[in-house]
Each structure stands twice: as C-alpha cells, then as structure tokens.
C-alpha cells in the first residue's frame, strides 16, 4: 500500500461530528457516579474522594505541562501552596465566600508563575525538571520560614468553613464539602478540555513534539512555554484553594517535594498527556496512599513506589494509553489490531 504521490483519488471528506457525543455522555456518566459517592460511602471514604478530586486538579496542572507541552515538572506543589495559602488567608481575614477564594487563589498562582516562569523555561527537559524542583523547594522552605504570613511550620489553622452560595451556611458536612470540590473540579476539567481542543492546545502539543519546527513556522516558542507554565500555575493554585477549603488547615508539608512527586506519579500512572488519565491516576494514587496505606499499617510510600515501578514497566503509556498494552498484559485469542491515533483529552 505504498501511496506516495500517484494517488489522484478525491480527498475523502473528514468525518466531523458537530459535537463529541460519546465523550459528553461518558463525562456525564462519570460525574453522575461521582455525585453518588456521598450516598454510597462513609465519611472517611468521602473525605478520601474529596482529597482525590483536589489531587486530580493538581494532576491536570502537572499534565498540562508534562504531558501536553512536554515540560516535565516536579515543582507544581509550589503553586498549589500559593493557592492554598492565598485561599486560607482570604478565608481567615476577609471572606468565607468560595468563589472569591478560588478566583484570588488562581490569580495568585498566575502571578507566581508569571514571576518564576521566565527562569523555569530557560531549561527544557531534565534541566526544566531540575529548575522546577528547585522552585518547589524554595516554596517549601519559604512556607516554613515566613511565619507572619504562613504561620511557619505550625501551618495555618482556623480556616472558616467555605460558603458556596452567598447567604447560606458554611460547609462543614463532609458530603457537602465533597460536592463543592466536585463542582469546581468538573468545571476545571471542562475548561482544560476546551483548552486542549483550542488552537492554543494544538500549539502546546506542537511545542512538545518539535519546538524547533514550531519556531521555523514563526512561533515565538518561549512565549508559549511561559503561557503553558502560567496556565498550569493558575490551575495548581485553584487546586490549592480547594485543598484549603476542604482540609481547613494548610501547612508547609502540603507543598513539599512529595506532593509534586505524587502528582507526577498520578500523571504517569494515568497516561502522560491524557487528562482523564491524570484524574484517574490521581484517584489511584490517593486511594493507594490513604486507603491501602492504612490497610498495610502505614506503608503507603512502599506501595506508591511499587506503583511507580509497575506503571513504568507494565503500562508505559499509562491507564489511558490505548488498549494494546493492556492486551499484552492480558492476552486473549481475539487480537483485533486497532492502533487508533491517540488524541489526548
């Protein structure tokens, strides 16, 4: 089937559905199932789900940089922390209104990323990884040192319950907090999905695939790398605000190296570049840590480490990385080859 240039067949009109029906239905079903969580499980499990959702938003932020734009990061916890502290401070000193906390926290994350981003994007690949790691460490030490703002190593407590709708009571019930986080996480997911389908999303994938070529067709690539960094910073900060509202306590440990590493793990387990994969990965990581970790008397790091190693060897493309690798793991007679072109979202 060597068809180089001789083919004179008319161009088959690309089939374009006006609306991605299947995806929409799928997202709807997942959201519905998630909405049932507080009716199905006990308080402890619901709280774990809440943390998983917050972590999913952070994982999407890491994935936007690592998977979509091809800039592997170990520093997103810093912006997560900026968002968490901003959200907490707004809540304590100014307003317990959720929307306000979310917006201001996101803005703070955007500003932080704008300031630090120009340094980070001086490197690519492993150099970028190392610089972001350093930025993460600065954030961590700063949080522990700036006592007057962050409460130092004691952290910030006394965060009032978040008010979702003006004029109503603050949310203290575990299930209601879960719904608050779920709604914000779903909105964030949809926003990211829109971003990925947009021209800018295509630009980011181009940046990952071949930065030199992007430059050759007239892109100022550093600007787009910075833009990706800023979007991701804002998203991480949004997750941070959700964290502050749901835990009602923020401490330097929330922006440590481990948080960044686990977010990266979620992305790798889920499938680099895939947003629903990252969310699923976040779920797996949080439940491994909180749930299995308890079952195995606190050996969560051991389990997470095993998860890392197994994911790299057995699922090189992650959970979302196409069926071929699953088939290799669980071979069946029916071997119907379909290497569909993987389009991330």
């Amino acid at each position: 089937m060597s068809a180089t240039s001789s083919g004179m067949t008319p161009a088959p009109a690309p089939v374009r559905r006006p609306f991605p029906v299947r995806t929409t239905v799928l997202v709807g079903v997942v959201v519905l199932l998630l909405a049932l969580v507080p009716w199905t499980f006990g308080a402890f499990t619901v709280a774990t789900f809440t943390r998983a959702l917050v972590f999913a938003v952070l994982a999407m932020s890491v994935n936007l940089l690592t998977g979509v734009a091809g800039m592997p990061t170990l520093g997103q916890a810093a912006y997560f922390g900026v968002g968490a502290y901003t959200g907490a401070l707004v809540a304590i000193h100014w307003s317990d209104l959720g929307v306000l906390q979310l917006v201001l926290a996101t803005l703070a994350g955007v500003v932080a990323a704008l300031v630090t981003g120009p340094l980070a994007i001086r490197g690519r690949g492993v150099a970028f990884l190392m610089i972001t790691l350093a930025i993460g460490e600065i954030g961590f030490s700063a949080a522990g040192r700036l006592d007057s703002v962050t409460g130092g190593t004691d952290g910030l407590s006394g965060i009032p319950p978040v008010v979702a709708v003006p004029g109503t009571e603050g949310l203290v019930n575990e299930g209601l907090i879960y719904y608050y986080v779920l709604v914000v996480a779903v909105v964030a997911y949809l926003a990211v999905a829109m971003l990925l389908r947009s021209p800018f999303g295509l630009t980011l994938r181009g940046l990952r695939d071949n930065e030199g070529r992007l430059r050759a067709v007239g892109y100022r690539t550093d600007s787009y790398a910075l833009a990706a960094y800023v979007y991701a910073g804002g998203l991480a900060a949004l997750a941070g605000s959700l964290w502050a509202s749901s835990q009602r306590f923020v401490a330097p440990g929330d922006l440590g190296f481990e948080v960044s590493a686990l977010a990266l793990l979620a992305v790798i387990v889920g499938g680099v570049g895939s947003m629903w994969g990252a969310c699923l990965g976040a779920l797996v990581v949080v439940f491994t840590q909180d749930y299995l970790g308890q079952l195995f008397s606190g050996h969560a790091p051991l389990l997470l480490g095993l998860l890392f190693v197994l994911a790299v060897y057995l699922l090189p493309k992650g959970i979302a990385g196409g069926r071929s690798q699953w088939r290799r793991l669980f071979p069946r007679e029916r071997s119907q080859e379909d290497d569909e072109a993987v389009t991330p979202v």
């Binding site: 829109m194 021209p199 800018f200 295509l202 630009t203 992007l214 067709v217 787009y224």
Partner: peptide, 20 residues
C-alpha cells in the same frame, strides 16, 4: 494546521475547538 493557525494569528487562543 499548526502552520496555518499561526498565519491566521489564532495560535494563542485558548477557546474554540480547532476541529470546528
């Protein structure tokens, strides 16, 4: 498309699906 969207000046637009 990556080349085209740059020429049309929409390469940084974060909304509206490319496919449409």
């Amino acid at each position: 498309l990556l080349a085209l969207q740059r020429r049309h000046g929409v390469q940084a637009r974060p909304w509206g699906a490319v496919r449409r």
